[in-house]
């Protein structure tokens, strides 16, 4: 790595380094190390350790199933058991909300790093999203357990799941990067983010199926980027009894992509001032 002596680096005002993406690549191991640190630290000095990673989503699923399924008696999709319906919505939602919380605080909680060492700053919030992704993978184990318990066999749709995971990742990165940048400048977002997460749980189809939403409101409803992601997950996991609302899905997905593009641009524009402002 040290043998790249010939390359000349130019630093000047307002110039975004041409080497940025190259740097990102040469620091690729830092993605892993920062995520590794956060995961390792989380369960240090806890009694049951990693079990928390399973317990938290499981308990949330139980509560949501009881409240929406048994008490409110909302309908499931097709013949799928309600807990599986809830869990297939909760998977992407938890991933998204954990990423949002993690990423938006990541720059602030690594302030000492940012003001003392150089590396592409994009790594910090991305690592936070990766941490949530690991949680997501752990939760998938619970989903498999539920499927075995209810004797539920998914259709071929399950093979399309990686596509929806990618969209969920893009949505998490998009919102996470933007909020992380805003949080550096305005600490108000420390208080706004938990609110967004709480609010989002009710306006996204986590505890209920999108089919509950009246047709005339469908467009407005699809403006929430997580609607497309969650519907996609449901479609892939539960099988094809209910067709995907393609127009709504396309709208949500394109919003996700626009958000991601905008956020990366926004992040890159403010990145250089982080060390001075943080």
């Amino acid at each position: 790595m040290t043998s790249s002596g010939v390359s000349e680096l130019r630093i000047s005002a307002g110039r975004s380094h041409r080497q940025y993406w190259q740097d990102l690549w040469s620091y690729r191991e830092l993605f892993y190390f920062l995520a590794w640190r956060d995961i390792l630290v989380r369960y240090k000095q806890t009694m049951i350790g990693v079990v928390w990673a399973l317990l938290r989503p499981f308990l949330t699923m139980v509560v949501l199933s009881v409240v929406f399924g048994s008490l409110a008696k909302l309908p499931s999709e097709g013949g799928a058991p309600y807990p599986i319906l809830v869990f297939s919505g909760m998977l992407p939602w938890q991933f998204f909300s954990n990423s949002l919380t993690g990423a938006s605080n990541s720059l602030i909680s690594n302030a000492n790093l940012i003001s003392k060492v150089y590396f592409p700053r994009l790594i910090v919030p991305t690592s936070a999203v990766i941490v949530s992704f690991v949680d997501f993978l752990v939760s998938v184990i619970i989903l498999m357990g539920l499927m075995i318990w209810y004797n539920f066999v998914p259709s071929w749709h399950i093979l399309t799941l990686p596509v929806f995971v990618a969209i969920a990742f893009a949505a998490s990165m998009g919102a996470g990067l933007w909020l992380a940048t805003l949080n550096v400048q305005y600490r108000d977002f420390r208080y706004i983010v938990p609110f967004i997460v709480q609010f989002g749980l009710y306006i996204s189809p986590v505890g209920f199926s999108s089919s509950v939403v009246p047709e005339q409101w469908r467009w407005l409803y699809s403006l929430n980027p997580m609607v497309g992601v969650i519907d996609g997950f449901r479609w892939a996991i539960l099988g094809g009894d209910t067709p995907l609302h393609w127009q709504g899905f396309a709208l949500s997905t394109s919003l996700v992509l626009v958000l991601l593009g905008f956020s990366i641009h926004y992040f890159r524009a403010y990145e250089k001032t982080f060390a001075d402002v943080i």
């Binding site: 000349e8 680096l9 000047s12």
Partner: peptide, 20 residues
């Protein structure tokens, strides 16, 4: 801090050869 690229200069230019 500017040489190690933690913060960027307001004006002027630096050219560096080699890994810092």
């Amino acid at each position: 801090k500017i040489l190690s690229r933690i913060t960027e200069p307001t004006k002027g230019e630096i050219r560096i050869r080699g890994k810092v």
